[in-house]
Design a protein around this nucleic acid. Structure first.
Lengths: 190, 190
DNA sequence: CTTCTAACGCGACTTTCTTCGCTTTTGGAT
DNA sequence: ATCCAAAAGCGAAGAAAGTCGCGTTAGAAG
């Protein structure tokens, strides 16, 4: 009767294997094909999984990509908790910039694929929630804290932009500079 | 004998009309559909043009979007010269946000659609040069002036981001707030 | 005004994507 | 060990995307 770890019905079984193989296939295809050529039948073939399985679980390429991004971002760039806002922001920014690199333009493609309203993007929602929690911790400590929007616009947006237009991630010094800029503004404006 | 304006064989004829209608259809579809749902048959239907025509001239959705972007980039808001840095920045930001609106993040989607390394386009370089000139004027007036990178990251990136993730452009108040944020930082840091 | 030809329209045809009902497998629970 | 249900496999049928050859249209040049 629910011994804690059993949140999902079958966490370590065949379904999980299928998911892993499908995700791997998506990343492979996305990294050496044009986005338009990444189709569900192709993913199915490379993953060695039946098409219908993918249609049932993910529904569309957008769903697939979103799932991949949500998975990778969560595991590769956990939200830090260093005890200070600046520390959290710097770590988060640096990790995010690093994650964006191997994933290449995948995240950007994911964003481009998703509906106008990001409200439906699983990965975006998840990320936003984590970041908000980080900010809440800072507020609870009595620090002057930016809003989530300011954080997204001051840190995330420039990092995306960098990857998108320059084809390479921002380095850690650059990431720190962005944090610095945001904090200077928050100090000055509040 | 090349009398100047006759670069293309039939600049003002039926082909041009077809192109205009197709581009309009692309923009319409792209602004209220998911990228995945923008297909050539749909574009053809909305434009009132035969499918085969589009396949022949543009080949793919990526080709279509590229063409639209190339066309519209020329219409980008001119760089203002109001006499003050703040005025220039605010006008530029507001205009840019407006231009981005009907295009509905198309430029970003175009980048996402194209091959892995979407190298920095000519239009981007041109734009960057114009903005640099604007900054140079401010410096010449003796104002504390951000770098081009700071401008791109502080203004342009958030505006893109806004459109991309929220599906709507930033309003002019928001654009002004971004300018304010950038200038506060520049004042504080210099 | 006639001719030439690039570009478009048309519709049939091929390929690929997507859905559906059914069977089989499998992980978890009793 | 046995049972149960969720999820995967399977293949066929249907829908949509993409291709092709040929006839037609309409700018542009003489």
């Amino acid at each position: 009767m629910d011994r804690g770890a059993a949140k999902k019905k079958r966490p370590g079984g065949r379904s999980a294997q299928v998911r892993a193989r499908v995700q791997a296939a998506v990343i492979e295809l996305l990294s050496d094909r044009q986005l338009e050529e990444v189709t569900i039948p192709r993913v199915a073939e490379r993953a060695g999984v039946h098409q219908a399985t993918i249609y049932r679980r993910w529904g569309s390429v957008a769903g697939l990509v979103d799932d991949v991004v949500a998975e990778r971002v969560g595991e590769l760039a956990p939200i830090p908790d260093t005890g200070t806002l600046r520390g959290d922001l710097e770590l988060a920014a640096i990790r995010f910039a690093e994650v964006i690199a191997p994933l290449g333009g995948i995240m950007i493609r994911a964003a481009a694929l998703s509906t106008p309203h990001a409200d439906t993007s699983v990965s975006f929602q998840k990320r936003a929630g984590q970041l908000q929690a980080m900010l809440d911790r800072a507020t609870a400590r009595g620090e002057k804290t930016p809003t989530l929007t300011e954080l997204l616009e001051g840190i995330t947006a420039p990092l995306y932009f960098h990857q998108l237009f320059f084809g390479r991630p921002a380095d850690s010094d650059h990431a720190k500079a962005l944090v610095d800029r945001l904090l200077i503004y928050v100090e000055a404006a509040r």
